[in-house]
Design a protein around this nucleic acid. Sequence first.
DNA 1: TATAAAGTCGACTGAAATGATCGGGAATTG
DNA 2: CAATTCCCGATCATTTCAGTCGACTTTATA
Lengths: 160, 160
Amino acid sequence: MRLTTKGRFAVTAMLDLALRQENGPVTLSGVAERQRISLSYLEQLFGKLRRQELVASVRGPGGGYCLARDARTISVAQIIIAVDEPLDATQCGGKENCLDEHRCMTHDLWSNLSRHMFDYLDSINLHDLMVQQRERNSHKVVLHDHAPRACSTEPASVQA
Amino acid sequence: MRLTTKGRFAVTAMLDLALRQENGPVTLSGVAERQRISLSYLEQLFGKLRRQELVASVRGPGGGYCLARDARTISVAQIIIAVDEPLDATQCGGKENCLDEHRCMTHDLWSNLSRHMFDYLDSINLHDLMVQQRERNSHKVVLHDHAPRACSTEPASVQA
DNA sequence: TATAAAGTCGACTGAAATGATCGGGAATTG
DNA sequence: CAATTCCCGATCATTTCAGTCGACTTTATA
């Protein structure tokens, strides 16, 4: 499995988004500032996240990004796959031609490891992370002082 | 966790070694040829493996490498750590300064993933891989035709 | 003792991936 | 129209990976 800062940034950014979208679309520049990630880099990542339909975008002033689905239905694995493409620990990428057109001796080992990692990361969803984070921060919430735009199709508006 | 071909090569090479050391020290050039890994690259990897005391070397003609311990006591995780140094999925390498000297929101996630991967790879030892591989290959054994040198301290000589 | 077979070591290199930057767009609001 | 925000492609610097090279040491054996 590929585990790079790309995936890490994506998960962190998605969590930031999830924690703030109750106030309407979240701008990338906000995420960039809070999480210390370069804006242009975030744009690239969110391009992929949007194409995978994990987030939805709202253009224009007051726009930004929202989760495309409920946080409970977005797993960490999905986020990482979306930005990091291959979720595979084998050299051959599953083609089994690692050694002279045969599968190498350790092929199964890496396949199994891939599956393990995937299962673990797929068992954790954004909502889990939100809960953890709120526990840590004793529920600090920052509100916008202007009326937020709606998050497109998203009904959202969970929690009082 | 770092998972690169470095670690993959190391595990494959160690398995090759484990499967053949009954005939005395195994040369790196042999491993290189059988597993299609560049000799010089293997030398680097085995330098690390030796320093971590996973293998022992025998110099001079008829020399080569042997496992430094019983295959049952060498886990895949140990091999990977030996060559790939950091077994850590966090950005900060455990220093917890991922975000402005604080631990970032997803720090625990990556820590836990690291632990998961480690536990899995640590639960598999070289002997397990040997058994699997022998099952696949219906026990093909190639013998040297000259008397092999002993594997230094290693008593070894398991199996008839 | 000479030679060849091995390991040992450190510096170097090419290529790829990563992380980041830049500039110009298009959509949308007011 | 102007400001804000997303959108996209090209480009770039750095790091890491994987591999190479050359010089050296140790040791068996002819």
